[in-house]
Every structure is written in structure tokens, then in C-alpha cells.
Design a protein around this nucleic acid. Structure first.
Length: 972
RNA sequence: GCGGGGGUCGCCAAGCCUGGUCAAAGGCGCAAGGCUUAGGACCUUGUCCCGUAGGGGUUCGUGGGUUCAAAUCCCACCCCCCGCACCA
């Protein structure tokens, strides 16, 4: 571990000193521009965050070794409200947060006070994250770093929004948001107690008439208005009579207040208890039927209007409430109703569903054993009925013109019709009530006026986004469908808030552009960020015209430069640098940003830049879990990145977050994985140190004749591994790449070393040098520190990080050597099987190689099977034409033999057949003789090799079982 | 619900696109042996069932189907995870 640490620091310093990751335009080299979603500095990073960044870095390092001029920059996203909320919580000494910072992230306690200032907090964690990125060895060009609250960046965002507005993509309107009445602010997930997302639902208020008064019943299922049997009020709740937009309404007291947030003019006239209305009659506006108002405890005055229409046929709550009253009709008397009134009320069935009887609510209530209207299981019951009815339900004949429609259709139609007829209206309500603001106040829904939107709903814009997507490479490709879906689904997106850090909307400065809207095209900003710093360009010099020139090539350079007071040469340099690095070659993020950020990026690029500068690729990855569980504060299983680095080392962490899963899946991190990686690297380290000691003369490349079969074998395998690793890297199948490079290649190497030890005249020193150098180079993107060290130790020239990625050498592919080795391995396996099955402790093992005529028949059979599927009979006939074969094998033997091999041959993949044909007949005895010492040590017995067709010792008559590439075995 | 992903031999997880080399890689765990003062690490072997000869049997969510042949292709069903916005 100490060594590891030392190596890490050593190479990080050398990289920095040599500036090898600072990328400037170089017309002689192809460029590759990679960006990762910049981090939000409201807490330090944990190992989970490392996955996306490490993936991007590995890719950057790989492409660099493929000869590209790679730019990987980084910035910090200060925009938004979370950091404000956090600073506030910290100022209030919120225990959870303090313990998070102090216990989990090891922020020194005395620092906390400083961090109560939002910007200070952001700056602190910014540095923290940056340190971590350096310690893990990312190949970032830090000269281009910025934050989204830098005034220069603000100018850039202003320019972007001017462009969007010019193109007609900015609109203004109102929409419902979660709202804290006390703070006077919209609330998002991070603003609420328990971090719950306020879910806004749209209730239909159906206006039941009671004389001149309106009782607006709130429902999520307007289509059930035809099944209403009564109205529910909570007798104990406070209701009010109020003038709402000129109509006389009766609603709960809470509702009256809420309506004011939803643009209704409300004047409260009087207040009374719900019981006062029990037993009164109201008229259903859809059917004109007269029905009673009845009491129900489950009615929550805080939910919507506090007036509920009762549909016992299809709503479990209503069904149970009605049953309750029926079983206890005396309760009605206290409200001045006759007991027998209740007898006339029966569930009305208006929807038919295959899964249910006439009264679905009754089915489900009985199934779940629900007895009381306060039973929490009623929530599930409601969902179950709704789920089936929504999908499979049809409106019955008693629903007038809606008969025959599906529930999904009817729901929308009924709502629209009622609203159009003035018999209903809309009210928004929080579905997951109560949601409390961090300040403790219960949140409501407010219709936010004059909100600014980016209108992703514009069809012509969607068409551009689709076009961009079609041309893009999406990794993993499986998620393309999701992007398509999101592009179609997006509509107006509120793009500004009234609080938080960020850039002010240039034409309406009381609004601040929110974080998902100021992070869509900033990749372009990286290309000029270093000029801004180096030439000390001031924010006010960065006019729209300057950006127009740099990014769009619009305007006269002389005039623009003059006007902005920027040297024309510098301006042109910026334009050229942008054109060199743009378009973006690869964008990296976690999958969760597909529905917003990544798709916004596509949209905004198509809106602002010409087609040739649209992004070319998006790569996303799953999350990191911690020993199978989601990483979260509440589970207490967060490992801060820097702590992880200190404990396990940078390279092991890099490997750990990438080796356990491909892009699509979540990766599982655990200390044992990190340790395993570290141990694996240490083993490699030791092996290389050993190897490095060998005389250099021994490592020089021997001629082909000097190589033994096993030497050729490992070199051939090496080419295969290079090919596989390269293919995997091209698809960013990093898990596969790591497995190939670190494990599969190693397995072969171990086998080689074992074989070489028992084989005379191998070129082991040369082979080890060759294999290890290749392995180290391929491992460099993943474990750059240790690889640099080992590369140096092995006498590699320059930085491994800048060396060329290995190319497979076709000349070293040797199919014969590979088949020979498979032959040995299979034989060893078979031998072991026999020993195990028989329980013999072997002293002597006899191997009998197949007779020549078998080889002839075998190859003939393969040849035939390449043309067509071979049948036993026809094949035998064919073979018997050959007099030579017939004479040597005999008809019966040939038939027996063919019988044995025919199945094997028909199952054999085509490539293998071709390979075997290419190799032809081999001298198996010779192969076995060379491997004899090795085989003897492996099985710990004497090995005797004989030929089937020669005189031999064979008491059990086993030799006849010999097949080409599969010698017969006799053990004693 | 909509959209996306997934269900493989104790666990994790490859394979599935391009059917046959698949009883099915690899890792972890477990067992035995080696090494070691001991522990760890490391190495070897085994880890679905049966078998005194390299073999056989039953497996890849469930049920059907296509095929000489299916973990892989088709159909239906069941289950799990993620996203559905104004929030980074």
C-alpha cells in the first residue's frame, strides 16, 4: 500500500510537470473531445460518483493511446438551490447534516461555520472534489476549469438564452408547482422534510348543485360520475360558504385558502361544521339525479375540496363507508335522517372489467378483508381497482354517450365535456400529502404565473433533436429507445427560478436560470475557457457578438474585436480552437440524466449550432451499489472517494468501479472487490519486478525457428487477447476489457509458465517481456499509476500514458500451436476425469495416438461437413470408395469410428472446422513427446506414448478408441 | 399506466444480438490439500445429480411453440429494478 501511494504521487507529479494532459489544437493529429457532466459541489464525492468520471477518463486515456489529441476538461456546477438549502440547514445546526459532514465526509468541525455561507460551501466542496479527481489520476486539462457562477460563464449563458429566444424557443406561462406558503417559494424534493418529491395531481371538481350553492366534489376519476350514489362530507370538519370566482361554493375551510394559490378569487362568507349539511339533497350535474349528503370519517378536509362524491361500485373507500353506515343505520338518525333512507342506496355498476364482478370495489374489499373506512389497505384496494379498470374497463350502457368507451378514454372525455359545460373545473392537489417544507409548513400547490419556459414541445425542434439522435452513437445502444421517447415526451420546461445561484435571465433579471437549463451547451465553453484566463478577458468584453463570432462564425472579426476590445488574433485563436475541438465526440453521464440533461443537451445543440457541430456520442452508465445495497446516508454505507483512495489506492478503486458491470447494469462496489484488485495489481507488480531483473540480451526476439510450440502458443493467444480487449474498448465494454487484460490473459500466462518450466529451450524471458509489456500498456488506461511505474521498470520509452495501444500482429497467430495446446489440455482433463471416476491411483498412463486412416477419414468428414450436413451412411459410403482407407481400416472399424465422430463434427462450429482443415494431419506423438515432462508432473505418473497402429502394450484394448486430437487413454 | 432495464448452477455475474465448441466463463463463498510457528496472503483441486474409464441424467423465471438441435429464436404469463420533470 505504501509503495502504491508513493507510485501514485510520483506519476501524478510527473504528468503535471510534463503537462501531458493539456491539449492544444494540433492540426497533425485527429482530436477527440470528451466531457463528463460536471459535479455539483454540495458535498464531497463518494466512490459511486467515481464510476462515470473514471469511465470517461479511461476512455480519454485509451483514445490518447490510439493516437488522438484528447481533451478531457472539467468544471463545477454551482447553479441552483440545493447548496443554499444546505447552507441554511447547516446554519440552523441541522443534526443530520452536521453528522453527514463531520462523520461521513470528515469535514473538520471548525470548518462548518464558514460553510454556512452558500458560496463558501460550494467552493469548499469544489476543492475537495477536485483534489479527489487529482488523486484518482484523471487526465484532465485543468487549465480550462470554471464554475457556473463565474461572470464570464454568466455571459455565455446569457448569450445562449438570447439565441434560444431569437429562435422562438422561449415561452412564458403558468403551471402548478409545489409551494411553501410561508417561504413563498416553489419546493422541490430537496426542500422538503424527508426529501420527498411533491407529486402534483389534477383533480376534477364536479359541481353538484344544492339550491343556489355548489358542492365541488374532487375526484381523480371523473368518468365515475355516473355511478354516484351520494355525497360524502366529514361531519366533524369545518366547511365554509364562499364566493369563488363569482360562484357560491361550499368547500372545506382549508380548501378555500388553497384555491387562492390557484388563481381563484375567494371570499369566505361563513363557516360551519360538515354535520350541518348531512341529509340534504344535491343534484348530480351529469345525470340530474337527486342524492343525499351522507357522513364519512375518511373524508379529509385537507385534501382538495373536502367534498367527495361516492361511487361505491368502483371506489373501495366509498363502498366500505356505505357498508359501515348500512350496518349502523342509527348513525343517520343523529343527523336527522330516517334509517330506511340508506336502504335505497345501492352500488351502481358503470364499468365492466373481465377481472371483476358487477361491483369491483366489493370484490377487492372482500379479498383484502377490509372492514373499516379508516383501514390504510384501502389505498392499495383503490389502486388495484383503478389499475384494472383503467386498462381493461369498458363503460357500460348506463353512462350515456360514453357507453362502450374504455375507461382511459372516458375519463378524459367526461372531464373535458363537464368543464366545457361549466359543470366542472380543475384543482391541483399534492397526491402524497402531507408534504412539509423544511421550515415545517405544509406545502400546497400554487399556479405559478408568468413562468419562463424552454419549449421543448415545438414539433420542428423535436424533429431536429430526432435527427441529431439518429446520427449519434448511443452507448449502451439499448437505451436509444428511451432517448426517442423522451424527445417526444418533453414539453415546456420551466427554465428559471427566483432563488439560487446562477445566471440571471438577461431580459428579466429577477429570474435565475435553473441548473438543467444552464448546462446544455457548456462543452463549447471549455474550448475557449483557457484563452479567457490566459488573456485576462473581462466579462464585459464577452459580448453576444463575440460569442456569435467564436461559436457561429457570424460577424466581421475586425469589427467584433474592436468593439469588444479583444485582440483580433486572440479572437481568431478562440474561434479556431472551438472549431478544432468541436463537435463533442463523447458525452458521459449516468443513465438517470437521460430524461433531462442529456436530452436537453441534444435539443440545445440543435437549436444553436449548425448540424456539423452536433454531439456525436453519448455514453451512460448505471449507478454503483455498495455490497448490493443502494448507497445512501440512511444506510450509512457511503465511502467518500478520498477515503477510498487512501484505503485501497487509486488504481484499485478505478478498476473496482468499472470491473463488476458493463454500462447498462449497476456496478457493485465492496471492500473485498477493491482489495482483490489491489492484490491482483501487487502480484503483477512482483512478477514484473522479477522479470525486469533478467538480462536484456535474453529478451531479444528469437527467430521463429527458435520458438517452441508453447512459445508460439502464448504469442498467438496474446494477439487474440489484444483483439478482444481492443474490440471491447471500442464499445466501452470496460468490464470485458478488464477481464480480458487482467484475468484471461493472465490465465494463459500462468499456463504458459507452468508449461514452459517443464519444456526445454523455451524463450521464456523474451515471451514474458513481450506479454507483460503488452499487458501493461493495455492496462494503462485503467490503472495508469502502476502501469507507468512498471513500464519504466521494463525499460519502456516515455510515458506509458502516451505510448501506442498494442495492435494485434496477424503473423503471430498460430492456429496449429493453439490446437496442439488444446489437445494437451483436453487430454489432461480426460485423464483427470478417468482418475476421478475410477479412483485409480495411477503409476503408469498410456496414451495411444490415432491411426493415420482415422485422420484421413476425420479430415474427409470435416471437409464434407463444410459443404453440407453429413449423414453417417452416406459418409461411410463415400469413405469406402477410397481403397487405401478400406484396406487399412476395414469396413467395420470405419463404420464404428464414423459413428463416434459424426455427432461431434456436426456440432462443430464452422470456424473450427476450417481451422482444423487448415492444419490438416499432425504428428500427435511428437506433440505429446514434447509435453511429456509436463504431463508427468501434472498427473504424477509415468507417461508412455504409443501409436494405435503400431505394436503396443494395451491390455484393455483401449487404443481403438483413439481419435484425432483425442488420444486413447489407459491407466494402471 | 407509459418508457427503459432485468430474472442463468449458494451469492455476484458472463453467455443470449450472430441457435450447436454450454453443465454453462470469471469472481465471491464453501470444502479438501499444499505453503506457513499461527493467521492472512498465495498455490492446487473440487463445488447440480449419478458413474471403478474420458460417460450419462436433469438444469438457465413459468408455460407453450419453431428446429435434427434452444439459456440463446417466437408467443403468452409471472416477478424485480429505474425514470416520468421544474429537482440536482
Amino acid at each position: 500500500m505504501e509503495t502504491l501511494r508513493r507510485i501514485e504521487e510520483k506519476w501524478q507529479k510527473r504528468w503535471e510537470k510534463a503537462k501531458i494532459f493539456e491539449a492544444n489544437p494540433d492540426p497533425t493529429k485527429p482530436k477527440f473531445f470528451i466531457t463528463v457532466a460536471y459535479p455539483y459541489p454540495n458535498s464531497p464525492q463518494h466512490v459511486g460518483h467515481a464510476r462515470t468520471y473514471t469511465l470517461a477518463d479511461v476512455y480519454a486515456r485509451y483514445m490518447r493511446m490510439r493516437g488522438f489529441n484528447v481533451l478531457l476538461p472539467m468544471a463545477f456546477h454551482y447553479t441552483g438551490t440545493p447548496v443554499l438549502a444546505m447552507a441554511k440547514r447547516l446554519a440552523e445546526n441541522d443534526e443530520d447534516l452536521v453528522s453527514d459532514f463531520v462523520d461521513v465526509y470528515k469535514v473538520p468541525r471548525e470548518k462548518l461555520k464558514e460553510l454556512t455561507e452558500p458560496l463558501a460551501m460550494a467552493r469548499y466542496f469544489h476543492q475537495e472534489i477536485k483534489e479527489g479527481m487529482k488523486e484518482i489520476g484523471y487526465s484532465i486539462d485543468w487549465r480550462r476549469e470554471f464554475t457556473t457562477v463565474d461572470p464570464h460563464y454568466n455571459r455565455f449563458i446569457e448569450w445562449q438564452f438570447h439565441k434560444l429566444r431569437e429562435r422562438g424557443y422561449i415561452t412564458r406561462g403558468s403551471h402548478p408547482v409545489g409551494w411553501c406558503p410561508k417561504d413563498g417559494n416553489p419546493v422541490g424534493q430537496h426542500d422538503t422534510q424527508g426529501d420527498v418529491e411533491p407529486e402534483i395531481g389534477e383533480f376534477t371538481l364536479i359541481k353538484f348543485g344544492h339550491g343556489e350553492w355548489v358542492l365541488p366534489t374532487a375526484t381523480l376519476r371523473p368518468e365515475t360520475v355516473f355511478g354516484v350514489t351520494n355525497i360524502w362530507l366529514n361531519p366533524k370538519a369545518k366547511y365554509v360558504k364562499a364566493i369563488v370566482d363569482g360562484e357560491k361554493w361550499i368547500v372545506s375551510r382549508e380548501c378555500a385558502e388553497k384555491l387562492t394559490y390557484q388563481n381563484h378569487k375567494v371570499t369566505i362568507l361563513e363557516s360551519f361544521d360538515g354535520r350541518a349539511l348531512i341529509g340534504k339533497l344535491v343534484k348530480n350535474p351529469a345525470t340530474n339525479e337527486e342524492i343525499y349528503i351522507l357522513p364519512a370519517d375518511f373524508v379529509d378536509p385537507k385534501n382538495a375540496t373536502g367534498v367527495v362524491m361516492s361511487v361505491p361500485g368502483h371506489a373501495p373507500y366509498d363502498y366500505v363507508a356505505l357498508e359501515n353506515i348500512k350496518s349502523e343505520p342509527s348513525r343517520l338518525v343523529e343527523h336527522g335522517l330516517k334509517e330506511d333512507v340508506i336502504k335505497t342506496i345501492n352500488a351502481i355498476s358503470i364499468i365492466e372489467t373481465p377481472q371483476f364482478s358487477e361491483v369491483p370495489a366489493a370484490d377487492v374489499v372482500k379479498k383484502m378483508g377490509i372492514k373499516e373506512q379508516t383501514d390504510p389497505k384501502l389505498e392499495d384496494a383503490t389502486k388495484e381497482v383503478y389499475r384494472h379498470e383503467f386498462h381493461n374497463g369498458k363503460m357500460k350502457n348506463n353512462t350515456g354517450k360514453y357507453a362502450g368507451l374504455s375507461v382511459a378514454e372516458a375519463k378524459e372525455k367526461v372531464k373535458q365535456d363537464l368543464i366545457a359545460a361549466g359543470k366542472a373545473t380543475i384543482m391541483y392537489e399534492l397526491l402524497n400529502r402531507p408534504v412539509r417544507c423544511r421550515c415545517g409548513t405544509e406545502c400546497v400547490v400554487k399556479i405559478f404565473e408568468n413562468q419562463w419556459f424552454i419549449d421543448y414541445g415545438k414539433p420542428e425542434w423535436k424533429a431536429l433533436a430526432h435527427k441529431c439522435l439518429e446520427k449519434m452513437r448511443i452507448l449502451p445502444e439499448e437505451l436509444r429507445a428511451q432517448y426517442k421517447y423522451v424527445i417526444d415526451w418533453l414539453h415546456e420546461k420551466a427554465c428559471a427560478r427566483k432563488s439560487g445561484l446562477g445566471t440571471r435571465l438577461p431580459w428579466d433579471p429577477e429570474w435565475i436560470i435553473e441548473s438543467l437549463s444552464d448546462s446544455t451547451i457548456y462543452m463549447a465553453y471549455y474550448t475557449i475557457a483557457r484563452h479567457i484566463k490566459e488573456y485576462e478577458i473581462q466579462p464585459d468584453q464577452l459580448t453576444d457578438k463575440v460569442f456569435d463570432y467564436i461559436f457561429l462564425g457570424v460577424g466581421n472579426i475586425g469589427e467584433v474585436a474592436e468593439e469588444a476590445g479583444i485582440n483580433a488574433k486572440v479572437l481568431e485563436e478562440m474561434r479556431q480552437e472551438f472549431l478544432y475541438f468541436y463537435p463533442l465526440d463523447s458525452r458521459h453521464s449516468a443513465h438517470e440524466l437521460i430524461p433531462n440533461h442529456l436530452t436537453f443537451m441534444i435539443f440545445n445543440h440543435t437549436a444553436i449550432f449548425p448540424e456539423s457541430l452536433w454531439p456525436k456520442q453519448i455514453v451512460t452508465n448505471g449507478l454503483v451499489t455498495m455490497e448490493g445495497a443502494k448507497m445512501s446516508k440512511s444506510f450509512g454505507n457511503i465511502i467518500p472517494l478520498r477515503e477510498g483512495l487512501a484505503t485501497y489506492g487509486a488504481d484499485p478503486i478505478r478498476l473496482s468501479v468499472l470491473a463488476t458491470a458493463e454500462l447498462l447494469q449497476d456496478a457493485d462496489f465492496s471492500p473485498s472487490v477493491a482489495r482483490a484488485m489491489r492484490d491482483r495489481l501487487e502480484r503483477l507488480y512482483k512478477l514484473v519486478i522479477e522479470t525486469a531483473k533478467t538480462e536484456t540480451s535474453e529478451k531479444s526476439q528469437p527467430s521463429n525457428e527458435e520458438l517452441t510450440t508453447i512459445d508460439k502458443w502464448i504469442l498467438s493467444r496474446l494477439q487474440e487477447h489484444i483483439k478482444r480487449a481492443t474490440d471491447a474498448m471500442e464499445k466501452l465494454a470496460v468490464r470485458k476489457a478488464i477481464h480480458t487484460i487482467l484475468f484471461e490473459l493472465d490465465q494463459d500466462l500462468q499456463w504458459y509458465l507452468k508449461r514452459a518450466k517443464a519444456t526445454p529451450k523455451t524463450a521464456t524471458a523474451y515471451i514474458l517481456d513481450e506479454v507483460l509489456k503488452t499487458q501493461i500498456l493495455m492496462l494503462t488506461p485503467f490503472a495508469p499509476h502502476i502501469c507507468e511505474e512498471l513500464w519504466e521498470k521494463m525499460g519502456g520509452k516515455g510515458f506509458a500514458s502516451l505510448a501506442q495501444w498494442p495492435n494485434p500482429d496477424e503473423a503471430k497467430v498460430d492456429v496449429k500451436a493453439e490446437e496442439s495446446e488444446t489437445f494437451i489440455a483436453t487430454l489432461l482433463e480426460d485423464t483427470a476425469h478417468i482418475i476421478r471416476a475410477t479412483g485409480i491411483k495411477p503409476t503408469k498412463i498410456f496414451y495411444y495416438t490415432a491411426a493415420k486412416w482415422k485422420w484421413k477419414a476425420y479430415l474427409k468428414a470435416i471437409e464434407k461437413s463444410l459443404e453440407e450436413k453429413v449423414e453417417q451412411a452416406s459418409l461411410i459410403k463415400e469413405l469406402l470408395k477410397d481403397e487405401d482407407l478400406k484396406g487399412r481400416g476395414g469396413v467395420k472399424e470405419i463404420a464404428d469410428f464414423i459413428g463416434k465422430i459424426i455427432e461431434e463434427i456436426n456440432k462443430m462450429p464452422k470456424e473450427r472446422k476450417e481451422r482444423l482443415m487448415q492444419i490438416g494431419m499432425v504428428d500427435e506423438s511428437r506433440i505429446l513427446e514434447t509435453a511429456k515432462t509436463f504431463l508427468e508432473t501434472e498427473v504424477n505418473a509415468e507417461i508412455i506414448i504409443q501409436k494405435e497402429e503400431e505394436k503396443r502394450y494395451d491390455p484393455k484394448n483401449r487404443a481403438k478408441m483413439a481419435r484425432p486430437w483425442r488420444s486413447a487413454i489407459y491407466i494402471e
